[in-house]
Simulated assay, not measured.
Amino acid sequence: MKKHIFTLLRGRTYHGIGLVFILLLWTLNVSAANWSIHYPRPINESDSRHDYPLTLLKLALSKTGVRYTLTPSERILLQGKAIRQLKENREINIVWVMTDIQREKELLPIRIPIHKGLIGWRVFLINQDLSAKFHNIREVRNLTPLTALQGAEWPDTKILQSNGFNVLTVSEFPEAFNRLELKQGDFFPRAVSEVLGELNALSLDDDIVLEPSLVMHYPAAMYFFVNRSNPTMARLIETGLRRALEDGSFDNIFVSHHREALLKVNVAERKVFHLENPLLPKETPLDDKALWFDPQIHTPQSAPNKE
């Protein structure tokens, strides 16, 4: 009996050593590999919406010590096409988009919201000739009859429709601004994390302005996604992001990138309409407060700085 127990324990010891050895080999292989990461090419070189995700991705990769090359796709890939190409493992091997139940079934999410939830705080781009429509809005029911512009394949479209909004969809992102210019829609909800870059970088008509007093919010997260057959890359990026969260470098980049927009938009001074998001996966880490930023409570300077 004693010999049997000793043999069993020795087997467990060897098994444990084997697991450690396998993990060590995995770590060494990941570190030694030269990772070729291909992301969707933006509409044009002045499209600054890619700046922050790429900066954060580079930070995450740097925290793991891996060698990598980061390259845009040969052709422009708008969001819907990019998701389809990633699902089919063609042209690209990473995207950053807002999550929903369907996307998490088709792709592999890295559940760290890269904009810390700001993607769900939406202010309105409007045609200034129609600004009077927004002067006396006090409740959601005053807003829902107006026509909101959204992309046909965006989760936001279904979120707004489920909350009773009248939504006019467009097939391509630039078309929404054309519709706004032609007064074919009343407002184009844009994330706090996106709107300033669009106003500064895109060649918008002078009549398109930021509505000054309203904001709507629904819980939402933008993640990095990879193909479901690529869990190693997902673990690599998640490891880097978590290390960046722990040492404060994630928050430093978040604050430096978003400070100007948060100050300009000033959510705390706006009337907020809170909406439901029926597309939000149950796995969304809403209880992890370190992953989220509430612009009603926090100031742009309030993220921790540990460096």
Rank of each mutant, 00 (worst) to 15 (best):
M1F: 15
F6E: 09
T7P: 06
T7Y: 14
L9V: 11
G11C: 14
H15T: 10
G18V: 14
L19H: 15
L19S: 07
W26L: 14
L28C: 12
L28K: 13
N29G: 12
S31R: 06
S31W: 06
A33K: 11
A33R: 08
N34R: 14
S36Y: 04
I37R: 09
P40G: 05
P42C: 09
N44D: 14
S46W: 06
D47T: 12
P53N: 06
L54Q: 14
A60E: 02
A60W: 01
G65P: 02
P72G: 02
P72D: 03
S73C: 02
L77D: 01
L78T: 15
L78C: 04
Q85I: 01
I92M: 05
I94Q: 11
V97D: 05
Q102L: 15
P109D: 03
I110G: 07
L118T: 11
G120K: 06
F124I: 11
F124H: 11
N127H: 14
L130C: 12
A132V: 10
R141E: 13
N142W: 06
L143I: 05
L149I: 09
E153Y: 08
W154Y: 08
P155M: 00
T157M: 05
T157A: 15
L160N: 08
N166Q: 12
E172K: 11
N178I: 12
N178Y: 08
L182S: 14
Q184N: 05
G185L: 05
R190T: 01
S193Q: 07
L199T: 04
L202S: 00
L202I: 06
S203K: 13
I208Y: 01
E211D: 05
A220G: 13
M222T: 10
Y223A: 00
F224H: 10
F225E: 03
R228E: 06
S229P: 04
M233D: 08
R235K: 11
T239P: 00
T239I: 01
F250V: 09
D251C: 09
V255M: 12
H258W: 00
R259Y: 08
K264N: 06
V267K: 02
H274N: 13
L275C: 07
N277R: 13
N277A: 12
L280T: 04
L286N: 02
D287R: 07
A290H: 07
L291R: 04
D294N: 10
A303Q: 12
